[in-house]
């Protein structure tokens, strides 16, 4: 466990809490891609199946529960409680374009051909593309609420910090997981464009609106 990892997990948790607070307080999920949130719920479900079999630490177990809860509550709020405010026609990214390649790849490229390992690999690959429906929705609507950009910022920051964590672990423990690192780099690249807009627009107090 190192500082990058802790900051990364805190940033990830903060992103989920920002999203939950935004939806709960504004009683609306306008501008939020329900599909991305469903993908995140699938990511955590397929990744944390070892919740009851592998015990790493209290921290690890508690955080897994919290992440699962946040993901499912968010999906419930979007498709359940506030479904009337759900912007369905703009959330039109075809999930099969993500799920099929990711499923195929997790059967081809994995550490070992066991169910748990394949599901873990699937969750890693899926997480790297899970934000695409949300970014696609923003590019389609041409703008995003400021609170949504803060959510995306912390979500992107979490993975950038995880990259630093992997460099750190490689230096200190000579340990690295190629699958996680490669897909982590891909995931962070997807955020670069957003980071640029966030820094040049949102941090200057402007609304994030795409040209």
């Amino acid at each position: 466990m190192n500082i990058f990892r802790i900051l990364g997990d805190v940033s990830h948790l903060l992103a989920m809490i920002i999203l939950l607070v935004k939806i709960w307080r504004s009683k609306s999920c306008a501008g939020i891609s329900g599909k991305s949130q469903v993908l995140f719920a699938i990511v955590f479900t397929s990744r944390y199946l070892d919740l009851f079999t592998n015990f790493f630490s209290i921290y690890n177990t508690v955080m897994k529960f919290v992440f699962l809860m946040c993901a499912y509550i968010t999906v419930y709020l979007i498709y359940g409680k506030f479904r009337k405010t759900f912007d369905n026609e703009n959330d039109s990214f075809r999930l099969e374009f993500l799920l099929i390649p990711v499923t195929g790849l997790s059967f081809l490229e994995n550490q070992s051909f066991t169910p748990l390992e394949i599901l873990w690999t699937f969750s890693i690959y899926l997480e790297s593309v899970a934000i695409l429906p949300q970014l696609f929705m923003i590019s389609k609507t041409g703008e995003a609420e400021t609170i949504t950009t803060h959510y995306l910022f912390f979500l992107g920051l979490y993975h950038a910090l995880y990259l630093a964590n992997w460099i750190w672990r490689y230096q200190t423990e000579n340990y690295y997981d190629q699958i996680a690192v490669v897909s982590g780099v891909v995931q962070t690249i997807f955020y670069c464009d957003f980071f640029y807009l966030y820094v040049t627009k949102v941090l200057k107090g402007k609304k994030l609106s795409l040209p």
């Binding site: 990892r5 550490q111 423990e173």
Partner: peptide
């Protein structure tokens, strides 16, 4: 040892 470290991240 490497094996025990696998998947210890969130």
């Amino acid at each position: 040892d490497q094996e025990s470290k696998r998947h210890d991240e969130l």
